[in-house]
């Protein structure tokens, strides 16, 4: 009984409650206090990380944003965070590589070159690799120039020459985005099947890839380090490309906040990738004797293959032997034509 009374009382009170709330919402501001204060709006939007925007009568919807305080955060990112992260990553990696080379030196082919070779990368794979590699180098240098150029090159070249160089860098950066992206996609299609993680990778990683002495752990066509390299290139490169295209077509798909975010992702990932690729370049040239052949002629020495990619090399050699055994017939058939 008591409960029903209470409910009835509440029901009766509802309209009154609603009325007072409505009043509170539409109540005019206290006299003498302006309802809109530029000062407060700016402060609020700065704290909330939002923008002050409205309507414009010119045909440029972006102009309707009156104040976007996030510009300050982007400035801090570009001038401080990115400069430090990029500087440490790139210079740090260079330092580590120089140190490693001084201490460890080139990893020689165990037992020297055998004189016979096997095919590691066919022409299409090499061509694609070099398309990605050359565009990456130009993209990386022109990108680094945007962050570090004014501190490093500007004092050396003077404003005119430096601006001209940066202008060409910008054009190159814009255009090479296309072959780079294409190459990343082709790379994914060509190599994904050899880059799926397996148990062999676990053993390889536990042995440190033979990087710090000890026996060379067995590996398939790509060892765990190369697989990591592959996924960093494909996934990192994919995100860098996607965010890059958002920046290349301003306001096509996103607003100013989206472009700031795109730039942050793009540049941070890019400097980290540059550091990783420096390591990749070192291993492919000075670091490991015989590795360069894989990407230049595509033919690697059999001893090198057995040392670094034993499982793959053995399978490859077994197949060659099987083909050779079947060869007489093939030669006959060929000669008959």
């Amino acid at each position: 009984m008591r409960r029903t009374l209470l409910i009835a009382a509440l029901l009766l009170a509802l309209p009154w409650l609603a009325a007072t709330q409505g009043q509170a919402q539409t109540a005019p501001a206290a006299p003498g206090r302006n309802p809109i204060s530029a000062e407060e709006l700016e402060l609020q939007s700065a704290l909330r990380g939002g923008v002050v925007d409205g309507r414009v009568s010119i045909p440029n919807p972006q102009a309707a944003v009156l104040i976007q305080p996030e510009g300050r955060d982007w400035r801090a990112f570009h001038n401080v965070t990115l400069a430090w992260v990029g500087g440490i990553a790139v210079l740090g990696m260079l330092g580590v590589l120089v140190l490693y080379h001084l201490v460890h030196g080139t990893t020689r082919i165990a037992g020297g070159r055998s004189g016979s070779t096997i095919l590691r990368f066919p022409t299409i794979e090499r061509a694609n690799h070099w398309m990605v590699a050359t565009s990456f180098v130009v993209l990386a240098l022109s990108g680094l120039n945007l962050t570090f150029g004014r501190h490093v090159l500007l004092p050396l070249l003077g404003p005119e020459a430096f601006a001209a160089l940066s202008q060409w860098g910008k054009y190159a950066h814009n255009f090479l985005a296309f072959p780079f992206t294409l190459g990343i996609v082709v790379m994914l299609l060509l190599w994904v099947k050899d880059n799926l993680p397996t148990w062999v990778d676990w053993e390889w990683l536990k042995a440190g890839g033979g990087l710090f002495g000890g026996a060379h752990p067995p590996a398939e066509r790509f060892n765990a380090g190369q697989k990591l390299m592959f996924w960093i290139t494909v996934l990192g490169g994919g995100v860098v490309a996607a965010t890059g295209f958002l920046l290349l077509f301003p306001f096509a798909a996103t607003d100013i906040a989206g472009m700031q975010l795109s730039h942050m992702l793009h540049s941070i990932l890019a400097v980290l990738m540059i550091a990783v690729i420096l390591g990749h370049i070192y291993i492919g040239t000075l670091g490991v004797e015989g590795a360069w052949d894989a990407m230049s002629t595509g033919e690697v020495d059999v001893n090198w293959a057995l040392q670094h990619h034993r499982l793959w090399a053995e399978a490859q050699l077994a197949r060659e032997r099987a083909e050779a055994a079947a060869a007489p017939g093939a030669v006959h058939a060929g000669a008959a034509d």
Partner: peptide, 24 residues
């Protein structure tokens, strides 16, 4: 060089760019 960085940083959307050439 028309990189657009000043536009990202400017709180008032003041920098403007003529659209020239390819893409944006």
């Amino acid at each position: 060089i028309g990189c657009g960085y000043c536009f990202y940083a400017c709180p008032f959307g003041a920098p403007q760019y003529p659209r020239v050439g390819n893409f944006g």
